[in-house]
Nucleic acid binder design. Structure first.
Lengths: 166, 166
DNA sequence: AGAAGTTATTTCAAGCCTAAAATGTTTATG
DNA sequence: CATAAACATTTTAGGCTTGAAATAACTTCT
């Protein structure tokens, strides 16, 4: 199988060409997960105590803040990469709270556009500023150059998820 | 601008006066989240179709595979960084499926140790091998050197979650 | 010993999440 | 036109997740 020697680390059989690289990638994945979970959990806590809201709600609001004209439910679920049914529930609650409105789409009675209300936009503007500061503080072990470099490397991991056709 | 050398004497704090760095960190965070979610979602799908199981179940089994003597519920929830109540539910289902056993702890009737059954260990050994191969493939855009480097950088982000007394 | 505090775990309420089925609408095709 | 196929969204069933409250057992202090 492997032409390179030095493989007396024979543990759980990664049947890859380069076991050392495979282990390095596995360690990277575990660390990636750990760092992400850590930041996510701090963020969740901050959103909860400061604004009495949640990360999924914040994500929906962020997506709609960027898209001033609003988004259809399917666009929202595609941008956020969560299931359709999931978006339904989160939007339902945000509508009840007066943060979002559903607007029928002309010429297609199946679809709905979702948009931030004025109150929703104002609330989000506040949250976004605090959010950036939190992130800045949570990632303060990484300088700007490293951040840029890591962003590019992560891009290569996430890229596959973007390709539309073939 | 003030003398920049003083900053690191005070604290390894985020420099609120550097908007460019702040934006770079924000972009890094968004990309981190995206890459992690992408890999997580592929993994979830693979576990579902190949082994009819879930990521949380896999995580519990992985932790217990490493700890041959088993772990107490509280240790499990601490290792996995999820709430106590959460672990209770996942373990309940794994016990029903014969993958885990709960064992009373001597001299402390409050506590329970959880351990993989023989069947559980065998199942996990299979899954671990496939899991490593999946990760290896999902992260194939990153070579071993980069992986090592990124792992170290991520360590700096996750580290704060570990320090007990600053 | 008995009260008070601490620790380990479970239960609970509410929300998040997914895959799959269901509903209603539009478009394409015979 | 009718009907089949495709589409947008919601509903459903089941599991995950959290924070807080509830139980039960252990420890400490007087």
């Amino acid at each position: 199988m492997s032409e390179s020697g030095a493989a007396h680390l024979v543990e759980a059989g990664a049947d890859a060409k380069d076991p050392a690289a495979s282990k390095a990638r596995l360690r990277l994945w575990l660390k990636l997960l750990k760092a992400t979970k850590h930041v996510e959990s701090e963020l969740r806590e901050n959103l909860r105590v400061t604004f009495d809201t949640t990360l999924p709600r914040f994500d929906v609001m962020a997506a709609l803040y960027r898209a001033e004209a609003g988004l259809k439910m399917s666009e929202l679920s595609s941008v956020l990469r969560v299931s359709n049914g999931n978006v339904t529930g989160i939007v339902d609650r945000l509508v009840i709270d007066g943060i979002l409105v559903r607007i029928p789409v002309d010429n297609d009675r199946r679809a709905t556009t979702v948009r931030l209300t004025k109150a929703g936009r104002e609330q989000f503007a506040e949250m976004a500023a605090r959010h950036e500061a939190w992130i800045n503080s949570l990632l303060d072990g990484v300088d700007a150059g490293e951040a840029q470099q890591m962003t590019d490397q992560l891009e290569r991991i996430a890229r596959k998820s973007n390709r539309k056709g073939a």
